[in-house]
Design a binder for these strands. Sequence first.
DNA 1: TAGATCACTATACAAATTGCCCAGCGAAAT
DNA 2: ATTTCGCTGGGCAATTTGTATAGTGATCTA
Lengths: 169, 169
Amino acid sequence: MPSDQQSEHSDQPVDELDARLLLLLTDEPRLGVLECSRRLGVARGTVQARLDRLVERGVLTGFPPALDLGAMGYGLTAFAVVEIAQGRRAEVCEGLAAIPEVCEVHATTGQGDLFVRMVARSNADLQRVVDHVVDVPHVRRLSTSIALSTPVPPRVRPLLERVKGRPPR
Amino acid sequence: MPSDQQSEHSDQPVDELDARLLLLLTDEPRLGVLECSRRLGVARGTVQARLDRLVERGVLTGFPPALDLGAMGYGLTAFAVVEIAQGRRAEVCEGLAAIPEVCEVHATTGQGDLFVRMVARSNADLQRVVDHVVDVPHVRRLSTSIALSTPVPPRVRPLLERVKGRPPR
DNA sequence: TAGATCACTATACAAATTGCCCAGCGAAAT
DNA sequence: ATTTCGCTGGGCAATTTGTATAGTGATCTA
């Protein structure tokens, strides 16, 4: 018999079952709906419904292929803080977006600056990329630093684990 | 004597077909092998073989679920440059990894510093997270900046597009 | 308190997909 | 000349998906 006295409804965007499902998919993304239902010990329809709802709510945005840029030849990752001319963010971002090696751009507090993540094939190649960046109109100053290692790779797991462990508030 | 021209075998980690396949999966990650083969106009076995090889080579590491942290309640993203005590990187990273809101850590050039990406539910919550970070032993200084927007979200597409468009080299 | 809802279980069934295998073919490498 | 390798095209059984439907207990609402 399923049923405890769970009184959480639409308040929590992700409840425990959702978290367990997402965690499962995080570990083995290729699992089908059926397999998931078996592992979680719930009916297939439930898993299906949960997934649909997560997508609706915008929590789950898809299953994009994870590529290892290093294995693709882009062994270098660098971060750059970009200082730009006042009020030119849109143009600058457009210019940055046009550079394939620019993998991510954020506008941050501090001085209306931008924060950029980029990759390159080698130091020489990075030089080239950086040159491209500084050539973007309205870019005033660029402070680059190279990633030597990544002690904590991008992750969401701990956040899900917390939901899973903690009864919804 | 290495007759160049088109001797692309094991040199290019990702050839055009690979790129087209990955691009296709980037846009519609849930596609099955069969559907992919239809879209690309090649035999099913070919797609299967390509995928297997990409995984072998370590280029394709999987299809992890993409979660929107914002939709999950973590609407704030912040970056921090962490200055640490000499030779304590391992300990510090361990400490940082123990904080669920810390989503990513890189060791960068500059001063043997760390670069951290973290999320929070609100400004007050960010305060709490930051406090946790500074409480990690051997953390000397913390410079935090909040992400106001993300003009260029994490992407790999342009890199693949380039491979696709350009004949091998 | 009597419905009305909602989430989940449990089944069912046709259609599609997967996993695997095999023979043939052409280009490149030995 | 012979072998190797990648791709094609087909085949087949087993599994999974897409979609429905009915039943049940708990929560919400008038």
